[in-house]
């Protein structure tokens, strides 16, 4: 018998691909050429930056009203986008309103992803009765249309920012839980999970090392699609008076109060809606792009 390396030398395939990118490297490499996604990713970053920097960017105090210049069209004097029914600068209010709207778009999704993801992974991995208990509970929430559910919860909790956040989180938990459960149940049947069990690994170790990493990307992609839904829901709640209280600038709330003036100054009234539309479309397109980029055939 020859020595180990000599026998195996013939077996070693010729090197083919010296470039090793890793999973995220591959995702980025795909994303790099997806100009639509990149553009909207840039747009989202810009919107977030504008919201963060609102105190320095906004030309006026968003709450300073002026009876003299109510409902003026864009370009009136120094009001670039015109004024609302109380004579407040629309541009400043949209910039400041982005803070509330983005907060309402992103933070409930974040909380729901953590809570719903946890329950989903638990349900998917444990199976059996645990699964039944968790998923049937989720189904109860699923049975209601999300808007109705949000209105109901919000109505019982009362208005206000924190309550709105809690409402949206509760509404978003079931769909994320379902996605996490499906993804986990799929991963659970994979041979590498059995291989880990065969090596003597205990359940927590398998969950963290093998299950979570594989469930994460589908859940994250799905969660990113919910951001726009969350923004729209939050705006809807504010519109109905169940969200943030006036005079806090918020896109949904602005749309609600400007609604009465739609025949007087239609263009101005539409502007908060445009902000909601652009932001939610941007989040949707980016999550689409992410999904495609993350779809690595292993």
């Amino acid at each position: 018998m020859t020595d180990i390396s000599a026998e195996n030398a013939a077996l070693i395939p010729a090197p083919q691909k010296p470039v090793v990118r890793g999973y995220w490297g591959n995702v980025w490499n795909k994303l790099r050429y997806d100009y639509v996604t990149l553009f909207f990713l840039g747009l989202i970053i810009a919107i977030i930056l504008i919201a963060i920097l609102a105190p320095w960017i906004a030309p006026f105090d968003p709450n300073k009203s002026s009876m003299a210049s109510r409902l003026k069209p864009p370009g009136f004097k120094h009001f670039v986008l015109g004024t609302d029914e109380q004579g407040r600068d629309i541009l400043s209010r949209i910039i400041w309103g982005g803070r509330t709207s983005l907060l309402m778009g992103i933070s409930p999704v974040l909380f729901a992803t953590i809570i719903g993801g946890l329950f989903g992974v638990l349900a998917g991995f444990a199976g059996g009765r645990t699964n039944t208990a968790i998923m049937r509970t989720m189904d109860v929430f699923f049975a209601f249309p999300s808007v109705l559910l949000a209105v109901a919860i919000s109505g019982s909790l009362g208005s206000g920012m924190v309550n709105q956040m809690i409402t949206l989180t509760i509404v978003l938990i079931p769909p994320i839980c379902r996605v996490a459960e499906t993804a986990t149940a799929q991963v659970r049947t994979m041979d590498f999970i059995d291989a880990a069990r065969a090596s003597g690994a205990k359940t927590p170790s398998i969950l963290f090392r093998h299950v979570l990493v594989n469930v994460m990307s589908p859940v994250l992609v799905y969660a990113s699609t919910l951001v726009s839904a969350s923004i729209l829901l939050a705006s809807g709640l504010s519109f109905l008076g169940l969200g943030v209280a006036p005079p806090t600038p918020d896109w949904g709330l602005m749309l609600s109060t400007l609604r009465q003036s739609i025949y007087v100054q239609p263009l101005v009234c539409a502007l908060p809606g445009v902000a909601i539309l652009v932001t939610s479309v941007a989040f949707n397109l980016v999550s689409d792009g992410l999904r495609q980029a993350m779809d690595v055939k292993a």
Binding site: T189, D191, R209
Partner: peptide, 17 residues
Amino acid sequence: MQMVFQDSYSSLNPRLP
């Protein structure tokens, strides 16, 4: 006692080197 699974996309964790 260890096991070698049929080669398929599921036998190795796709997210681990």
